Simulated assay, not measured.
Amino acid sequence: MNSKRAVDRRRRLALLPACAGIIGCCLLSGCGIQAGTPSPAGTVTGRNSTGTASSTPHSDSDPGDRKLHMLAVDPVLAELPSGLAKTDEKQTPAHYETPGFGSGGSFGAGVSVTFTSAASIPDVYRMIGENAVRNGWVAKAADSTGMTNRWLKTYPDGSPATLILSCKDQNATTTTRSCTLDGGI
């Protein structure tokens, strides 16, 4: 009976990365983080649930990219703890997408930082969590393993922000792990 439980537990643990990815995508889409790339003309192109999307920044959503800048220079995203090596950073300005067959409207600014580390997954979560709390973020929720992976912060101008940490294949036996820290405002 115990071996059956162990097999069932291993199967459930094997599904965790996929579930975390799906939940992360759902959360990010609800937190105003939109995948896209700004073009030189100020238009953001990317993909949404209806296919390819094109949008333009709204002057009232984030004038002068003030909120984007506030998030991008926040130490939790700009200065990773020792032992975490930043490999990529993407900044997405706040923008508006014309509603189509399923999505559209205003999307907040977002910053996504990808990094690698040789530290264990629990250590990565602990380091990011300690850095977040040190910089004014409040723990909000934990993933299925019980590790805190979401934080909230309200900036001095009253803008609410969300921070989400996710790591690829938490059960992998590789010595280096890749993780992403997504902030949205």
Rank of each mutant, 00 (worst) to 15 (best):
I185Y: 09
D8L: 13
I164A: 12
P57Q: 09
C31L: 10
R126G: 03
T173Q: 15
K90D: 13
C179G: 05
Q34N: 05
H69N: 13
A85S: 12
G158F: 09
N149C: 00
I33R: 15
K153T: 05
V124Y: 05
R9N: 10
D62M: 05
A72R: 05
S29T: 07
E130R: 12
C26L: 14
T52A: 14
I23E: 09
Y125F: 03
S106V: 04
R12Y: 03
Y96P: 04
V111W: 02
W151V: 03
Y96A: 06
P17T: 08
S49N: 09
G108R: 04
D62A: 07
V44L: 15
A109Q: 06
S54M: 03
C19F: 05
E97K: 06
Q91Y: 01
C26A: 15
Q170E: 12
V138R: 15
G42V: 08
C19V: 11
A14L: 09
R47D: 13
T52V: 10
L77Y: 01
P99F: 00
L181Q: 08
K86Q: 15
A6I: 14
V113P: 03
F101S: 06
T180A: 03
P99K: 01
R9F: 06
N171R: 13
S49L: 15
T98P: 00
G64A: 02
T154M: 06
K4E: 03
L80D: 08
G129S: 05
T175N: 14
T52I: 14
G30R: 15
G64K: 01
T174F: 08
T50H: 13
S178D: 07
A119E: 11
R150Q: 13
E97I: 07
H69A: 11
P38C: 11
D60H: 03
N131F: 07
M147K: 04
S166F: 05
A20H: 11
V73Q: 07
V113W: 01
A41H: 02
T148K: 01
A119T: 02
T176Y: 08
A6V: 12
R126V: 04
Q91F: 08
T45K: 13
L84Q: 05
A172Q: 11
N149R: 00
Y96R: 11
L165M: 10
A6D: 14
A132R: 06
D143G: 05
D65V: 07
G32Q: 01
V133C: 00
S59C: 01
C167V: 09
A14V: 07
M1I: 03
P75R: 13
N131E: 08
G24L: 00
S106A: 02
D88E: 09
Q34F: 00
K90V: 15
M147Q: 12
Q170W: 06
T175Y: 15
E79K: 13
M70K: 07
